[in-house]
Design a protein around this nucleic acid. Structure first.
Length: 233
DNA sequence: GCGACAG
DNA sequence: ATCTTGTCGC
């Protein structure tokens, strides 16, 4: 039961692991499909995602907002509400939030060139954070932007916005970067998810930093989901 | 056995 | 994520 036969899973998009061991196996298998090369030619559309919990209903609300890039003007908004089927376990976030994100994404009539997710990309214990997971399953470029570190080590960075410090794996590989998006404010953790390299991911996130710590697409999605939460409480 | 630990 | 008052910096 060490290695999983991914091909044998009917709907990997909504598959719920029966154990942590199985979840680990799925991540190790899907990790092989991650690409760290830019697959896009230019970026004219970008989207941000965020989720909230409807505790009473035991459901998750996911909101995705599509923006024109680099203007960052809103073009569309979609959302999904899904039953909570997997708990929050550090390192296995995608199994909890993935289904809701994928369903909402499917409702977008126009797809973005890049999707920014809350959480890590390859800066993960097994190199397969939620940004990688969503990117591989949807086969689209994704970037992971976390507010906290999950994995890796780094040196302190300057206070000037735009400054960053590489995130290193235990083996010494650069797996992401800690980016200062705002003065005198804690940095964010940026790492490639799929079909994009670190330099590009950093450029995009830096470009999306508009006066706040969290990049605009994510910040807007955050507000959107907060409203949805009230509406569906 | 003791820390670390995305949202 | 969520709860939750006052408080510090721009």
């Amino acid at each position: 039961m060490d290695s999983i036969d991914i091909e044998g899973i009917p709907d990997i998009r909504n598959y719920v692991p029966r154990s942590v061991k199985e979840a680990f196996a799925i991540q190790r298998a899907l990790k092989e499909r991650v690409s760290l090369e830019n697959s896009f030619e230019s970026i004219s559309l970008i989207a941000g995602v965020d989720l909230a919990i409807l505790k009473e209903r035991k459901q998750l609300v996911c909101g995705i907002i599509l923006f024109e890039f680099p203007e960052l003007s809103i073009i569309d908004k979609v959302y999904s509400i899904v039953d909570e089927k997997f708990p929050y376990i550090p390192g296995l976030l995608s199994f909890r939030e993935g289904p809701a994100i994928i369903e909402a994404y499917g409702k977008l009539e126009v797809k973005p060139d890049i999707l920014i997710l809350d959480g890590q990309g390859i800066a993960h214990p097994r190199g397969f954070g939620i940004a990688c997971h969503i990117g591989v399953i949807l086969d689209i470029p994704t970037i992971g932007v976390g507010k906290k570190k999950l994995y890796g080590t780094f040196d302190e960075l300057g206070m000037v916005p735009g400054r960053y410090s590489p995130l290193y794996s235990k083996q010494g590989d650069t797996i992401g970067a800690v980016l200062r998006t705002k003065k005198n404010t804690k940095p964010v953790f940026v790492s490639p998810g799929h079909k994009i390299d670190l330099p590009s991911a950093l450029e995009v996130v830096t470009e999306c930093a508009r006066g706040y710590r969290v990049p605009e697409p994510t910040r807007q999605a955050d507000k959107y989901v907060a409203e949805l939460k009230k509406e569906f409480l």
